[in-house]
């Protein structure tokens, strides 16, 4: 149990009684680096929101390891770019978990802001107003903020959008550094080559998990085909999901941690290949 950073228990998330994540079970191991892949509308961002707690589950829940600090980089930021702030002001928000609402920023804090900006290749950008940044620069600024949050669990939702190839390389290095520091990382990515090269584990979603585990296994052609057949649209008249109506024949457990926990429900255990 001590090794499970996140435990999904029969987690159903969605909008207007239509599920976007349907009865997800499984465990994200502490210190793991997982890519979350799937078609548009397959529930990737919804899962992220559910983990952060911005979206309340319709059923089931997410158990976080006690005391875990979370950093979340959303796909669609609600950032107001017209707000009169400088890069350094935006990045300094990442000090919130450490300093809270009232704590003073110390000299070390200011130095760490500078270091975080250097790490994403934005050294010297401190004083720039945020409305003068390009899309990619803004994305890197937000990465610097995540860096500063010093979180144990890092959730990145399509972080490589609008970012050039060189910078993607830099950011991947940063993610690998976090991985080396035993942080738990989940990243929503679309580029499967990038996933194969850099992410040890992958969760392939199509509302339900199609496959979850070792990247090479998960991204096998038959799994990808299965995921591609996934029907994105809601069906207005879809039957109501009754208890025990789903999740039969999923005894195939996730490789390394299905044994680590006991479940009090009927939905099988561990992520599995369906």
């Amino acid at each position: 149990m001590t090794n499970d950073c996140l435990t999904f228990r029969d987690l159903t998330l969605g909008y207007n009684s239509h599920p976007a994540i349907h009865h997800l079970n499984g465990v994200v191991r502490k210190g793991s680096l997982t890519a979350v892949v799937g078609a548009n509308g397959s529930g990737k961002s919804t899962l992220m929101k559910g983990i952060v707690g911005v979206l309340k589950p319709m059923e089931g829940g997410v158990l976080r390891m006690p005391g875990v600090r979370t950093a979340y980089l959303p796909q669609q930021s609600e950032l107001d770019r017209s707000f009169p702030a400088r890069v350094v002001d935006l990045v300094s928000l990442g000090l919130w978990p450490k300093r809270g609402m009232l704590g003073r920023y110390t000299k070390e804090d200011r130095e760490s802001v500078g270091k975080a900006l250097m790490a994403v290749g934005l050294g010297g950008f401190e004083k720039r107003p945020i409305d003068t940044l390009s899309g990619g620069q803004l994305q890197r600024t937000l990465f610097a903020r995540v860096l500063l949050q010093d979180a144990d669990l890092i959730l990145l939702d399509e972080p490589f959008n609008a970012v050039d190839a060189k910078t993607v390389g830099d950011l991947i290095q940063l993610i690998k550094r976090w991985h080396g520091e035993e942080r738990t990382i989940m990243v929503v990515v679309h580029d499967l080559d990038l996933v194969r090269q850099n992410f040890p584990e992958t969760l392939l979603l199509a509302r339900q998990p199609v496959a979850w585990g070792d990247t090479k296994e998960t991204l096998r052609p038959e799994n990808l085909l299965k995921a591609r057949r996934f029907h994105e649209a809601w069906e207005e008249n879809a039957p109501w999901c009754e208890p025990d109506d789903h999740d039969h024949g999923h005894e195939h457990a996730h490789d390394h941690h299905a044994h680590a926990h006991d479940h009090h429900h009927d939905h099988g255990s561990g992520p599995r290949a369906a």
């Binding site: 952060v52 979370t70 609600e78 707000f83 702030a85 919130w96 609402m101 949050q149």
Partner: peptide, 23 residues
């Protein structure tokens, strides 16, 4: 004075504030 930082964060990036705090 007390709520300055929270107020700025709520204006600048409300989703971020929700992810780190209940303020």
């Amino acid at each position: 004075g007390i709520f300055w930082r929270a107020l700025v964060a709520e204006c600048l990036d409300p989703l971020f504030l929700r992810s780190v705090s209940r303020m």
